[in-house]
């Protein structure tokens, strides 16, 4: 069985790095709706995909993944909002893990909004 002993090693390794982890106001924020509507529509794999990719690519200082409740647009869940400092908020609708991957590559890393998945592109306000 995996024990808690390994944690001690992680702590020692991390301790000197922790002080550097202050809230970065220049970071891109990716917010996934995780209320009943979002979860039922498949938000968990979307959140996990973003979180896994950010860690995998070592972008935890530049991209912050978090979750929120219901924003009142349940029929368009899973919804992902991207907040980039100095830019307008982008809202992606009806997301899944594959689309999340695409948004990760093209938008969050590449800097180009993936128009076809946005709420604006679907003609909604």
């Amino acid at each position: 069985m995996k024990s808690l002993a390994e944690l001690q090693a992680i702590r020692e390794k991390m301790q000197n790095r922790v002080n550097m982890r202050s809230e970065n106001s220049n970071a891109i924020r990716v917010v996934v709706g995780m209320a009943t509507c979002g979860i039922a529509a498949g938000a968990r794999p979307v959140l996990n995909e973003f979180a896994a990719k950010v860690q995998e690519k070592g972008l935890t200082d530049k991209i912050v993944v978090s979750q929120t409740g219901c924003i009142g647009l349940c029929q368009y869940e899973p919804i992902v909002e991207v907040f980039e400092p100095g830019k307008e908020k982008i809202t992606y609708i009806k997301m899944d893990a594959e689309k999340a991957d695409e948004v990760m590559e093209r938008h969050l890393i590449g800097g180009h909004v993936v128009e076809k998945y946005t709420m604006a592109a679907s003609g909604l306000k």
Binding site: E6, Q8, I10, R11, M14
Partner: peptide
């Protein structure tokens, strides 16, 4: 328990999250 061992290292640090 985990919090006590980690002594201030947050859970969303990649190494801790993976653990």
């Amino acid at each position: 328990e985990i919090r006590e061992i980690l002594g201030g290292v947050p859970f969303d640090v990649p190494e801790v999250s993976a653990y």
